[in-house]
């Protein structure tokens, strides 16, 4: 099993990009390279960004263990599906020690007849006081044939914690589209703008600007293809 172990005081920032081709440059990862377990020691920090491009089916299961005081883990993910993809993401975030922080932010777009399953859980042990843990999963459905299931969970055994979770499934807002069109932005461009700005809060955690711009441009062009094929 792939494991990522981050020693005391260290910091690791990783981007995993699941995509078919390297058109437009950039990197790509195999699903097997994504760690199934991340262990973060005291005052260490893990930042992980997972990107699932159109055309890719994936089954990602990730356990994160915050095992020392002051450990921090941030997991960001975006998925864009326009066809028959099946994307399954499950994250268990274990807060075992006090004063640890975690954040999960997953945003995705489901079109075609794709199916997305998101499951995310925050588990705060009894001793893990002063935990701050947040989890969000937001989705946009593009078609009636696409399906999204989202199950955010909290399991809290400590009493002095700040935790929240939230999940939404929505459609592209038509009032926004009309507003943009009334300014001369085409319907296609309006949708691209809406979708790119929807997943931008995930992409902004790709720290290297050149890499971020390349990934954004590539996702934008794939999103445009999806819209044209609806």
């Amino acid at each position: 099993m792939e494991e990522m172990h981050i020693r005391k005081g260290d910091r690791v920032h990783r981007i995993y990009v699941l995509r078919h081709t390297l058109d437009g440059g950039g990197t790509s990862s195999l699903q097997s390279e994504i760690p199934q377990q991340i262990v973060v020691e005291g005052n260490a920090r893990a930042d992980v960004v997972l990107l699932v491009f159109p055309g890719i089916s994936a089954d990602i299961k990730l356990d994160v263990h915050l095992v020392g005081e002051g450990a921090e883990a941030n997991v960001y993910g975006a998925y864009v599906c326009g066809g028959e993809e099946k994307v399954k993401i499950a994250v268990d975030m274990y807060h075992d020690e006090p004063h640890c922080n975690s954040r999960q932010l997953f945003k995705g777009i489901a079109g075609g007849v794709s199916k997305v399953d998101f499951y995310g859980k925050i588990i705060v042990a009894q001793d893990a006081q002063r935990t701050e843990a947040y989890q969000e999963n937001h989705n946009i459905l593009l078609t009636d044939g696409a399906k999204v299931d989202t199950k955010p969970q909290l399991e809290i055994y400590a009493d002095d914690v700040k935790c929240s979770h939230g999940a939404t499934i929505g459609r592209l807002n038509e009032e926004e589209q009309f507003y943009m069109r009334s300014r001369g932005i085409s319907l296609e461009d309006a949708k691209v703008l809406q979708m790119i700005s929807f997943i931008a809060p995930v992409l902004e955690h790709v720290e290297d600007e050149t890499q971020r711009d390349a990934l954004t441009a590539r996702i934008e062009s794939e999103i445009r293809n999806i819209i044209r094929n609806i």
Binding site: E175, E176, Y179, L193
Partner: peptide
């Protein structure tokens, strides 16, 4: 709507729409 805008029509909205992220 976009063709009308290109042709020179502009509507100032009574309730301008918020576009988060843009």
């Amino acid at each position: 709507p976009e063709e009308r805008a290109w042709a020179g029509i502009f509507l100032s909205f009574q309730y301008p729409v918020e576009i988060p992220g843009v």
